[in-house]
Design a protein around this nucleic acid. Sequence first.
DNA 1: CAGGATCCAAACAGATACTG
DNA 2: CAGTATCTGTTTGGATCCTG
Lengths: 141, 141
Amino acid sequence: MAHPIADVEDTAFEACDEGRALVRDVLERVGDKWSVVVICQLADTTRRFNELRRMSEPITQRMLSATLRGLERDGLVTRTVHDTKPPRVDYALTPRGFSLLEVVRALAGWAEANAAGIVHARTAFDARGLGASDLRRGPAA
Amino acid sequence: MAHPIADVEDTAFEACDEGRALVRDVLERVGDKWSVVVICQLADTTRRFNELRRMSEPITQRMLSATLRGLERDGLVTRTVHDTKPPRVDYALTPRGFSLLEVVRALAGWAEANAAGIVHARTAFDARGLGASDLRRGPAA
DNA sequence: CAGGATCCAAACAGATACTG
DNA sequence: CAGTATCTGTTTGGATCCTG
């Protein structure tokens, strides 16, 4: 472990600035709407394609396909093809996938703990309404 | 804290599935390229607009503006306007912003720890080359 | 069942140019 | 200095149709 998670102030910069490209990379995977959902669905067992499709609700098969491929590429899930009568493909988390799951769970914990506050802050902010701005079209509005 | 972070297997589902919309929300903020960068730059001190602009390198002022507005809206940063001769606006993390910073640092730690493995996995995967597919254009390729 | 190929609409991001 | 308003190019993502 490169990070014993020392004192906050000091290492924050290193972690964020030093390997920015690197972090961005992971963040893009995590920030992806479907990657996280799929990873969670694989949390406790192996799943088949259409199984994941149904569980991940409004995902399209194109997105599921692409998401799984991305996860497989990063070594986060394994893809096992059984060429049986009706084709069957199983997806499962790799050890690395599980470790990411843990981090995501931490994030989810934070989200849960702060959801109310965030929603409140937003309402207040929006109420203080600014006329109208095209900038509202920024990142993650 | 709603989450003492119990045993992995069990709560993974709850955390990910129960508050999916909620988690997605946070994830979108975290997954955003610039939000994280800005939060890191505010890690140890208050900063001014153009200061952040320079520190965040190739960010455009439109993106910085939008990012800051989003962070402010979620109660993660405060915006303080001093109407002095040359206008001056200071941005700083709120307590909630700091708590998010911690989570992001955890993520960064994971990224650092797994970067090599991921890069390797990708190279291997790409080497096993599949002809050509439009799906390669999936999420976060 | 598992997924590739396409086409198309919408969200996003960069470059300017302009204002208080 | 600290932004806002456009205008436009790039990515994404959804809908569909098709195959092994």
